[in-house]
Amino acid sequence: MAGTPSLPTIDFAEFGDGRSTEARVIGQKLFAACRDVGFAYLTNTSIPQDQIDGMFDWSAKLFALPMEIKMKAPHPPEGWKHRGYSGIGREQVSQLVFDPDELKAIRTGKFPDFKESFDLGNDQASTQQNDFPHFRAYTVNFYNACREFQMSKLLPALAIGMDLPNDFFHRHHENNENQLRLLHYPEAPTSVFESGEKGRIGAHTDFGTATLLFQDDCGGLEVESPSKPGEFMSVPPVSGTVLVNIGDFLMRWSNDTLKSTLHRVRAPPKRVNDSGMTMERFSIPYFMGADAEKTIECLPGCFGPDKPKKYEPINAGQYLDMRLNATY
């Protein structure tokens, strides 16, 4: 991977157990990035690079399988069931649209999301085990590595940066209600992207607490500029980093103190020897969600006489179900 960072970079090398002066500085930097931009590159996460590379290898093998094999583990109709394969066009990203007629128009509109995906949840059940041996074991290990970083470093760092107890967010993320998604954007003629016949993913925000995003070296991710609303800046893959971004749930929880930022995936710029084709792209987001049964109220320190609460308390599970079901 190559690239020049266009976002803040947070180095977790000295975080340790979260009790040191260095850990406090890391937490403060993470909080500033989440408040001002909503995105950051992370380094020294303790998720091994060879494990990340291996997950991309498994993803490529999965999506190269014949359709009849992939469809042995279809994604259920409900968006909140984080399991199984979704073919091209099955999921269509929308931004805060819940009306059935409007959603139908988006799904059949001019710019369909040209991607396929495979979702995995915390129990990793899959009917593809016999057709695709060892895939389940590898994804379980990778999921657990992401979970370990989430609980041992990321959430404690954010709590520290917000002057909350280190374990504050742990109390709301005990049930491991997370989602690992393998994404494949197939190769296609460049002309279909230029004409708008096909798209990658339109501008949207994520739904949950936060997301870890692993990119291949293709490029195409863009994030809305924090200083110029409506303008998007490229977020190139950077060797040895993982991206993190804030989700709508945490933005609401923080009374809009933290920023859930619009982002999109565009077809990458033409390259020498493309021969009129836009190369395929792979990415792997790990979505973090709060415990479904928990009802959350405005975070301490995020409201006061000069900053009244904007939102009523809400149940985490109901909020995420509402958002996810609008995408299927």
Rank of each mutant, 00 (worst) to 15 (best):
S283Y: 09
N166R: 14
G240R: 03
Y319T: 00
L155Q: 04
M1F: 11
S275G: 12
D321G: 00
S191V: 13
G289V: 03
G230H: 08
A13E: 09
V192S: 12
T43A: 07
P77I: 08
V37G: 01
Q150V: 04
V97Y: 03
P313D: 07
A159E: 11
G161K: 06
M55L: 08
R271D: 04
T241R: 06
L7W: 03
G289I: 01
T278P: 06
D101V: 14
T45M: 03
F249A: 09
R83V: 07
K310Y: 05
F135A: 04
F142S: 04
R181N: 01
V37P: 01
M67W: 00
S59N: 10
C298M: 00
D167G: 06
D217L: 05
V93D: 00
D119H: 12
N245C: 09
R24K: 13
L155A: 05
N175S: 06
D206R: 01
K259T: 14
A13L: 11
G18Q: 04
D206E: 08
H172L: 09
R35P: 01
S6K: 12
L154P: 00
T43W: 04
K104V: 12
P226T: 06
P313Y: 08
E174D: 02
E312W: 01
V223T: 08
T45Q: 07
